[in-house]
Amino acid sequence: MIVAQLLVNGLALGAAYALVALGFVLVLNATGAVNFAQGDLVMAGGFLAVALAGSLPVPGIVLLPLVMGLMALLGLAVSLLAYLPLRNRPPVSVFISTIAVGIILQNGVILLFGPEPKAAPALFGATTVSLGGLVIPEQSIAVIAVAGLLILGQHWLFARTQLGRRLRATAQDPEMARACGIPVTAMIALTFAVGAALAGAAGLLLSNQFFVTPSSGAGLILKAYIAVTIGGWGSVAGAVTGALLIAAFEVVASATVSYSAATAALYLAVLVILTFRPQGLFGEAAGARA
């Protein structure tokens, strides 16, 4: 019984991590650049949700589109300030510019909100649901559902829409896309916006159950990086799988051994996977451009 409960918790956490990793991998595919600010964007999304909830006492599900919309604007700003001026520069300079964005976000949030941990409102309610002996927080179910829908929505956007085809074309070969008349710069900015919106969603989802502090982005970027790499650099399915794997170690494995042992086991598992699959679980997708 407890195993089922742990699985539900692990799935909820993994679903939220998957949103973080997804935002990271979309930007990676579109630009070949590592967005190191992704963790801090999640943190900023959490604080945004807290701030909005302060003036709008509505359930989190109502705030979600608002948070995602505002975070998309922030994503546009990040692309404008930290990526576009560096697009034809060494990719590692984007790494540094997004580190700087992370520092700005972290310390800006400390200035605006102070250092206290904060909790965002629940998506629907804070009650628990009893399912055949399982005590599941309503929020966990809502997180799994909302994150799942967002992941599917992202997939639908990229696979089925005209806009998605353009975004994918930009990601695959920007030169060719430009030659075909696709506004590449706009597409890249849009990808940053989508990535930041997903980060905002993750921030809203995570900061209800797990709170948010100005320094909580740092741990998330490591998790996203591991998820994305272990899944196969640039592979969207790999990123989601990697995120679930990390959550499984964090929740399920640590229910049997200590947290430290579970963390060590996670990194050892990463090293073992790289030994046998040196290109990640799902193989390389971003290729040499990354």
């Binding site: 409960q5 742990l6 956490l13 797990f210 929740v251 640590s254 229910a255 200590s258 947290y259």
Partner: peptide
């Protein structure tokens, strides 16, 4: 007795143990 990393989010595992 168990140590918990401050970055750990889900407390269910340690509570269970």
């Amino acid at each position: 007795e168990e140590g918990v990393d401050p970055g750990i989010r889900d407390m269910l595992p340690v509570l269970t143990k």
